[in-house]
C-alpha cells in the first residue's frame, strides 16, 4: 500500500471520527445531511458485499467493517437518538435520494465490466459515492451557520477521494499498467464536485473567517 492510499483511508476514517465526535459531544447533528449519510450506508453495503466472500487483508476487512458500522451508527443517531434527532435540519435537507440512486443504478446496468450481481453493485456503489455528497453540499449552502466540525468533516471527506486519485496514478505507473475507467472517472467527478467547497473552506481558514458558502 502506498502513502497516498494510506493517507486517503486515514482522511476518510478521520472524517467519520470527527462526525461521530461532533454528534456525541454536542448531542447535535445540525448541518449534517441525513440524505448523504443514508446514501453512504447504501454505498458501503453495495460495495462491501465481498467482505465475507473474498479476503484481501486484515486491514481491508477491518476498514470495511468500520465504514459499515459507523455509517449505520450515524444514521441511527440522526433518526432514532431522542436528543440528536431533534437537532436534524429536516426542512432544509430536501434533496431526494431517488434522483441519485436511480440514475446511478441504471448507469451501472449500462456501463460496467462484467454483468454479474457483485460487479454491478460494486459499479453502482462507485457511481453513487461520487454524487452522495450533493445533499450535504446543498444543505451547507442553505445554512447560515456552519460549525467548524461540520466544515472540517466535509473537507476531509472530499480530500479522501482526491488522495485516492494520486494513489491510482502511482499504482498505474508502479504496478501493471491497466486503465480502470470506472473508479478513476467516478473518483475524478467525486473530487471535482468538492472544488467549490474546497475553495471556500481554505479561504475561510486562511482569513480566519467563519465558513459560508454562497447560495
Amino acid at each position: 500500500m502506498n502513502a497516498f492510499r494510506l493517507a486517503g483511508d486515514m482522511t476518510h476514517l478521520l472524517s467519520i471520527i470527527l462526525l461521530l465526535l461532533k454528534i456525541r459531544a454536542t448531542k447535535s447533528c445540525a448541518g449534517i445531511s441525513l440524505k448523504t449519510q443514508e446514501l453512504y450506508v447504501i454505498v458501503f453495503m453495495s460495495r462491501y458485499l465481498d467482505l465475507f466472500r473474498t479476503y484481501y487483508s486484515l486491514y481491508n476487512s477491518l476498514m470495511k467493517i468500520i465504514f459499515l458500522g459507523t455509517s449505520m451508527c450515524i444514521v441511527w443517531y440522526m433518526r432514532s437518538h431522542k436528543v440528536v434527532r431533534q437537532t436534524y435540519n429536516n426542512d432544509e435537507d430536501t434533496f431526494r435520494h431517488f434522483f441519485l440512486v436511480l440514475p446511478c443504478f441504471v448507469l451501472a446496468l449500462l456501463v460496467h465490466r462484467n454483468f454479474t450481481f457483485i460487479e454491478i453493485l460494486w459499479t453502482f456503489s462507485l457511481y453513487l459515492e461520487s454524487v452522495a455528497i450533493l445533499p450535504q453540499l446543498v444543505l451547507l449552502q442553505k445554512s447560515s451557520n456552519i460549525d467548524n466540525l461540520t466544515g472540517t468533516y466535509v473537507f476531509l471527506l472530499g480530500a479522501y477521494r482526491g488522495l485516492y486519485l494520486f494513489n491510482w496514478v502511482y499504482r498505474f505507473f508502479t504496478e501493471n499498467h491497466r486503465v480502470r475507467w470506472i473508479p478513476w472517472l467516478s473518483g475524478l467527478i467525486q473530487t471535482a464536485i468538492y472544488t467549490d467547497f474546497f475553495y471556500y473552506y481554505i479561504r475561510s481558514w486562511k482569513n480566519r473567517e467563519k465558513l459560508k458558502l454562497p447560495a
Binding site: 476518510h12 481491508n60 465490466r113 485516492y164 499498467h177 491497466r178
Partner: peptide, 10 residues
C-alpha cells in the same frame, strides 16, 4: 498482459 486488479481498495 495486464491482469485485472483485485478490488483491494476501499
Amino acid at each position: 498482459n495486464p491482469t485485472h486488479k483485485p478490488k483491494d481498495e476501499l
